[in-house]
Amino acid sequence: MSQVYLAAQLPAITTEILKKQQLDFSVYSGTGLISKQDLLANVKDAEYLVTALSTKVDQEVIDHAPNLKLITNFGAGFNNIDINYAKEKGIVVTNTPLVSTNSVAEVTIGLILALSHRIVEGDAQMRKEGFPGWAPLYFLGQEIAGKTLGIVGLGNIGQEVARKAAALSMKVQYWQPHQKSDPEERSLGVNYVSFAELTRTSDFISLHAPQTSANYHQFDQAGFNQMKSTAAIINVARGPIVDEVALRDALQNKQIAGAALDVYEHEPAVTAGLADMKNVILTPHIGNATIEARAAMGKIVATNIALVQAGQTAKYVVNQ
């Protein structure tokens, strides 16, 4: 059996590196996401597992792979893997951080622009009903220049979003559990505010925090009640940070003006009702879906396998 099992089809650079290192590997060849049954069948003799963040690697999977040395997750997140149980079994778990930063930040800014100028709604209008003709008050949106962007989670992606937003003349404020240093804030041109202040005063709220037990449903009915009726929320972080039923209700009741989601609470399912709303943009988790970002991620997972195979320490270990 193969030393390496790739539980998803990955960029060519991944297999190129594995071939160069003379590592025997096999790749999931099915359509769609790999099933639990297929994963269990193929991982049983593997020493290295490459898995997408959409695939759950729980205790059952780990117990089916007694030879496993490394689980390398193709994604910046790793909440799909039971990292603590893997550590108990002596299995190293890695992810692919940093390389997604620019792509996700670009998507975030794109969603803000699309919401504010009603671009997706306008495209649907043209395809379904057509263009009735230019008129002074027809299909009005709003400019983002001068508006306040509230960023929840000022990590690498949040910081890059702040830079791009500032370049577009937005005012940027942020909240996270720990405030950045004064030099860091000044270099980014951001202001630290309380969570309540951020929700109350932001025109756009963009989520970039990792998923934790503390921020489950951080944006719930109470949170949406605090937001401006003209504000919109953008989630490119993790779905469960937003209570999607409460979001749907807030949109229906016009407590907030819009939303753009690239991740979902029950991914890949979308909460009923959201897809029917004109002021909601839904994208299929494309934050880092660029040729550049995915190739860089593929290089990381393959290189980590090569490092461990050579008796060296893998990079980006998340369960030390």
Rank of each mutant, 00 (worst) to 15 (best):
R238L: 03
L261I: 11
A209E: 04
D24F: 02
V245G: 08
I281T: 12
D82M: 05
A162P: 00
V61T: 10
S2W: 00
V104T: 15
L251D: 11
F219Q: 08
R127K: 15
D276F: 00
G141D: 12
E184W: 00
D262K: 08
I62M: 14
K278M: 06
F204Y: 15
A275D: 10
L49C: 10
E197M: 05
M1K: 11
V270A: 06
A237W: 01
G110W: 00
N235K: 08
H178R: 06
G122Y: 06
I286E: 03
S29K: 15
L274M: 06
Q22E: 14
G150S: 07
E129M: 10
N80G: 00
P66G: 03
L6W: 07
L274E: 06
N73S: 00
S26K: 15
L247Q: 09
R294H: 09
E185K: 10
Y48M: 03
E267N: 13
V27D: 04
I286N: 05
A293L: 05
V99F: 04
L115I: 15
L113F: 13
V236C: 14
W134D: 13
Y192F: 13
I112H: 09
V99M: 05
A306E: 08
A214Y: 06
T101G: 10
I233M: 07
K56R: 12
T51K: 04
G141V: 04
S213P: 03
H266P: 00
S116R: 09
N225D: 11
D38F: 08
V236L: 11
A8P: 04
T271V: 09
I109L: 14
S187E: 14
G223N: 07
E197K: 03
N80R: 01
T212F: 12
L207Y: 08
S187H: 11
H217F: 09
N79H: 02
I17S: 10
I71V: 15
L140M: 14
G141I: 03
Q125H: 12
I91S: 03
G77F: 03
N288M: 11
L70K: 05
N288P: 00
V4H: 07
N304V: 12
I157L: 12
F78N: 01
E16S: 13
T108F: 07
D58F: 02
P177Q: 10
E197R: 01
A114R: 10
D249K: 13
E47I: 00
K36N: 06
N80K: 02
A41N: 14
I300G: 04
V107W: 01
D38L: 11
L53V: 09
E292P: 07
I286Y: 08
N191A: 13
L115C: 06
L23E: 00
E16K: 13
P11Y: 06
G110R: 02
F78Y: 14
K254W: 04
K69W: 06
G150T: 10
S26A: 14
V4Q: 09
E121I: 02
T15C: 03
I62E: 01
K171Y: 04
N253H: 13
D276V: 10
R200L: 07
Q320H: 13
N42A: 11
R163P: 07
T55R: 11
I34V: 08
V245T: 12
V280M: 10
I305A: 08
D249L: 09
K228Q: 12
G133H: 10
F204R: 04
R127L: 11
P136M: 12
Q218S: 06
A86E: 06
T72M: 03
Q252G: 09
V57D: 01
Q3Y: 03
D63M: 11
K228S: 11
N279D: 01
D58T: 05
